[in-house]
């Protein structure tokens, strides 16, 4: 009998502009580009963490479907992050990103077992950073 193990190798954020997203996710957040393959009118564009270059890739996926922008707008209005990244120290990372002009909708907040903060990725999403205590 054969068994298979499914691995999670990719996750995505819907971005309104891939070039702008690549700049933000690399220059500000510090990810590095992994794949950049032309696919018709868009790109298969992924970034990875320099701490885990062979790890899960983040696909900067165009939000071209007409249903995507209204959903993103509604999530942003309620402060709901589209996804989450792990950091060592939320306070330090928030300070670093603010110095680069990144806007936060939630300051670093101690929620007991975890500290979180939420910022705007300028591509139509809010992103949470979190550190388990």
């Amino acid at each position: 009998m054969r068994t298979t193990v499914l691995r999670i190798n990719i996750t995505s954020v819907w971005v309104d502009d891939q070039a702008k997203a690549l700049a933000f996710y690399t220059d500000k957040l510090g990810f590095v580009k992994k794949n950049d393959i032309p696919t018709g009118d868009a790109r298969w564009l992924t970034v990875v963490s320099p701490a885990d270059p062979d790890g899960v890739e983040l696909l900067l996926e165009p939000d071209g479907h007409p249903a995507a922008p209204p959903l993103k707008k509604a999530l942003v209005a309620d402060g709901i992050p589209f996804t989450q990244f792990a950091v060592e120290d939320v306070h330090a990372e928030a300070e670093r990103l603010k110095a680069l002009g990144v806007v936060f909708t939630q300051e670093p907040t101690d929620l007991g077992p975890v500290v979180t903060a939420v910022f705007d990725d300028t591509c139509g999403n809010l992103i949470q950073i979190a550190a388990m205590k």
């Binding site: 309620d78 402060g79 939630q106 907040t109 929620l111 809010l126």
Partner: peptide, 13 residues
């Protein structure tokens, strides 16, 4: 606070 932050605080804290 955003709605998300308020919910997070009520649940987690």
């Amino acid at each position: 606070q955003t709605l998300f932050e308020i919910c997070g605080r009520l649940i987690m804290k």
